[in-house]
Write a protein that binds this DNA or RNA. Structure first.
Length: 790
DNA sequence: GATGGGCAAGTTTTT
DNA sequence: CTTGCCCATC
């Protein structure tokens, strides 16, 4: 048998691979030994191979950027299975993101071949915790069907509690308390264990009490927030040693991805599961991570977890992966040298056998506008060389930086995609639609009911809600039922009563259809009949069309699930849609969002003190903050395979004010031998461009005076410098790909719709370029291919 | 109960 | 310069 991944043993009821001759684990192992090293190991370098083959005892794999971390993890899983050490369902493999989990699952699946058992315990910390909690929900005061609240639900719940406690939520914002509580949960602290000082700090000493109330409310609602998923799981393990022992026995091998990003609860969770048991006397835990890529300290990640791994797990074997397969020599050298400025590293030296390649470029520009223009031109040049736009990314420190690039790219007609924005499932319309579905599937879901009971507007407000609430609390029934009760009495005004009665009738009808209609069709019916789709169709604002698109996408994605319940479970934990468009586009995203990705060409704008490293990071975290920012810079550079360009502007508009900035200290920390200073060729107007490499005098100049601003605006747009409004984006002659030579399809005065700017009137037509007065966004110059007639 | 104007605040983000 | 939230008004 050539496939090392078919094994036998049909002892598991859920095991559905085709019948194969029964063999014992020992035989399988013997066969693997006889066959010599399996093929899948051939593709590994010696260090990777060691990381895969060291199966006994704790292992820490320090995997530098681009060193084949995922390959090691997936091959290791395959290897454990192939050698008969454990079967897939005895392996626990945790990741942080659904994306990472999905990728790993796919790759393991490919290695294992068709028909092999899946890996049921490969998933995110949260997904696996949920799975465990659902089995033992009663032990932590929940019922198995508990709902998972997202941040939005969480805030609304907190608001209710603050109100009930008569706390001024102006002085003590719910959002702030949510963050505080999240921090406690991340640190594994239940209400009674929050340090007194911290607990007192909120709402004049009421912090702990509020946290307690909140947890009580969650239990009553049969709900858990994201933090609870981990925290309650840890509590479950602590309070029920027999259950813990069961899982310890089950999970013979534990693998952890991105270990440098684990927080305290996740660490506790892992430590409990990895404890020695008679069946498994060794800690067969393998953590993979890179201390140099720890950039989530601000949300509770503890780099210390990875730094003290060998103390937590004595006798741990540490394996370093330092051979980089991604970047060229100069890029690697630049990143490596930069990161040596950090203290407290475990230390790795990345190297590559590849070419030296192009040196990373460093380029000084006048302001953020020029930055966008220069980068745009650079990309167009790459495009002319036939490079794929999919292999180009702009990585920013803060999302406000994205706007300028978007505007520039729209003008240039350069396709781009913004990655990161509000996630699909966080969008208002998706959450509203989900709330309707939740109300049908889980009639006791009060938060869902509250969300949609007056969406679309049907004349029900706070006053009515309060009556429903009071009645619900009195009778100890869910809101939906309370509404039903009140629709039959005289407690409400006739108008409201009528509306509620109709709403209840709707829900009854939909619930009845639940069994007789495919759930995605039902969803469509619900959105239609509730008037929800109508609401957006009538909406004339810029993003209404997009929202309707999203709703369609939601319904489409439902088809992939067997029923509504399965869909809801999935969506509460995952729901990131891969936007199906396959057109080539430049990616714009934050440095955080870029972690784990790679591109041929990477642009790194905004390397200025205050922005990067970010001032707030320095103020709040001091040296640790600076080091985290530096790791972020390291992550940024190491995303590049062939080309990296760093930019810093002399002037940047922050909160509407122009400020003179100084270049980031990280620029000077780059190794001079491995970077190249680039002149911004287009920005050299009258010698205004200041390259700090030519002239260090960028300090203390009064570049924000009105005169300078005028000069700058004139420079960009000599013809219209006098126009008071925001200068129209400059169009570079002859650079635009002219299309439809036979004149424009648009005329002056046409009413048009633009995906970003909304509705507007065409003010002027110039070939395929339109000047449009948008209702909301003002005058913009856009390409005609970006608008449609309405 | 809806709607619009005024005011404060404004890294990074997954689940 | 934006955006989002709260409050006062119709």
């Amino acid at each position: 048998m050539s496939d090392p991944f078919s094994w036998d043993d049909s002892g598991e009821p859920d095991f559905s691979s085709p019948p194969v001759p029964r063999e014992g684990g020992i035989a399988a192992r013997a066969r693997a030994a006889a066959a010599g090293a399996p093929r899948y190991l051939d593709a590994l370098n010696p260090e990777q191979r060691e990381a895969v083959e060291t199966l006994d005892g704790p292992v820490l794999v320090l995997a530098g950027a681009g060193t084949g971390k995922t390959r090691v993890l997936t091959t290791r899983i395959a290897h454990i299975v192939a050698t008969g050490r454990a079967r897939p369902h005895q392996i626990l493999a945790v990741t942080f993101t659904n994306k990472a989990a999905r990728e790993m699952k796919e790759r393991v699946g490919v290695m294992a071949g068709p028909g092999a058992e899946g890996t049921p315990w490969l998933g995110t910390f949260h997904a696996i915790s949920t799975k465990i909690l659902r089995r033992h929900a009663e032990l932590v005061g929940l019922k198995s069907g508990f709902t998972i609240l997202d941040t939005d639900d969480q805030i609304r719940l907190i608001k209710q509690i603050l109100q009930a406690e008569n706390i001024d939520d102006k002085r003590w914002p719910a959002r702030q308390f949510a963050i505080l509580m999240d921090g406690w949960k991340n640190r594994g602290l239940e209400p009674e264990r929050v340090p007194a000082g911290e607990a007192e700090a909120f709402a004049n000493g009421k912090g702990r009490k509020l946290y307690g109330f909140y947890q009580e409310r969650l239990k009553i609602l049969n709900a858990a927030d994201f933090g609870d998923l981990l925290l309650e799981c840890v509590r479950l393990f602590r309070e029920n040693p027999d259950i813990l022992a069961d899982y310890q026995k089950r999970f013979r091998y534990i693998l952890v991805d991105e270990y440098q990003d684990t927080n305290v609860v996740q660490y506790l969770w892992l430590r409990l599961l990895a404890q020695s048991t008679p069946e498994s006397p060794q800690h067969n835990i393998c953590c993979v991570g890179d201390d140099d890529q720890s950039v989530y300290g601000w949300r509770g990640a503890e780099v210390e977890n990875i730094l003290r791994f060998d103390k937590d797990f004595p006798g741990a074997k540490v394996i370093r992966l330092e051979r980089n397969y991604r970047s060229t020599g100069h890029i690697l050298a630049a990143a490596s040298h930069l990161i040596t400025h950090n203290d407290g590293r475990l230390g790795k030296t990345l190297f590559t056998d590849g070419e030296d390649g192009e040196k990373p470029g460093v380029c000084s520009v006048w302001d953020s506008e020029e930055e966008a223009r220069v980068i745009g031109e650079d990309i167009e040049q790459l495009q002319r060389q036939g490079k794929s736009l999919d292999e180009i990314a702009i990585l920013v420190r803060a999302s406000f930086q994205m706007r300028e690039f978007e505007e520039r790219f729209i003008t240039l007609g350069l396709p781009y995609r913004v990655i990161g924005g509000p996630r699909f499932y966080e969008r208002m319309e998706i959450r509203d639609a989900m709330a309707y579905l939740r109300c049908v599937a889980q009639p006791a879901d009060d938060l869902a009911f509250e969300r949609i009971f007056n969406t679309p507007k049907r004349g029900l407000g706070d006053a009515t809600l309060k009556i429903l609430h009071d009645n619900a609390r009195l009778a100890r029934i869910p809101l939906m039922q309370s509404a039903r009760m009140l629709s039959e009495t005289e407690d409400l005004k006739p108008q409201q009563r009528q509306t509620i009665r109709a709403l209840i009738a709707d829900f009854d009808r939909w619930s009845a259809q639940l069994g007789s209609m495919p759930h995605h069709e039902l969803a469509e019916v619900i959105l239609e009949e509730s008037g929800y789709t109508d609401m957006w169709q009538k909406d004339r604002s810029a993003d209404a069309a997009g929202r309707l698109e999203n709703l369609k996408e939601l319904i489409r994605s439902m088809e992939e699930f067997p029923d509504l319940a399965a869909f809801l479970e999935h969506i509460s934990l995952v729901m990131d849609t891969e936007s199906g468009d396959s057109d080539e586009k430049v990616s714009i995203m934050t440095l955080h969002g870029a972690k784990g990705l790679e591109f041929e060409t990477v642009y790194l704008p905004g390397w200025e003190e205050g922005l990067f490293p970010h001032q707030r990071s320095l103020d709040e975290q001091g040296r640790a903050g600076l080091e985290e920012e530096r790791r972020l810079a390291y992550v940024g550079i190491t995303r590049a395979k062939e080309r990296a360009r760093i930019y810093f502007a002399t002037n940047r508009r922050i909160r509407g004010l122009w400020q003179t900035t100084i270049p980031s200290r990280f620029v000077d920390e780059l190794p001079a031998d491995h970077v190249e200073v680039i002149e911004s060729n287009s920005g050299n107007y009258g010698g205004y461009t200041v390259s700090r490499f030519n002239s260090t005098d960028t300090f203390g100049s009064s570049y924000t005076t009105p005169g300078w601003k005028r000069a700058q605006s004139y420079r960009d747009n000599p013809s219209s410098a006098a126009s008071g409004a925001r200068a129209a984006p400059k169009v570079i002659e002859g650079e635009l790909v002219a299309k439809s030579s036979g004149g424009s399809n648009f005329q002056k005065g046409s009413r048009v719709f633009h995906i970003k700017f909304g509705m507007g009137n065409v003010a002027a037509v110039d070939g395929n370029k339109l000047t449009v007065d948008f209702d909301k966004a003002g005058r913009k110059m856009v390409l005609e291919s970006f608008v449609e007639t309405k």
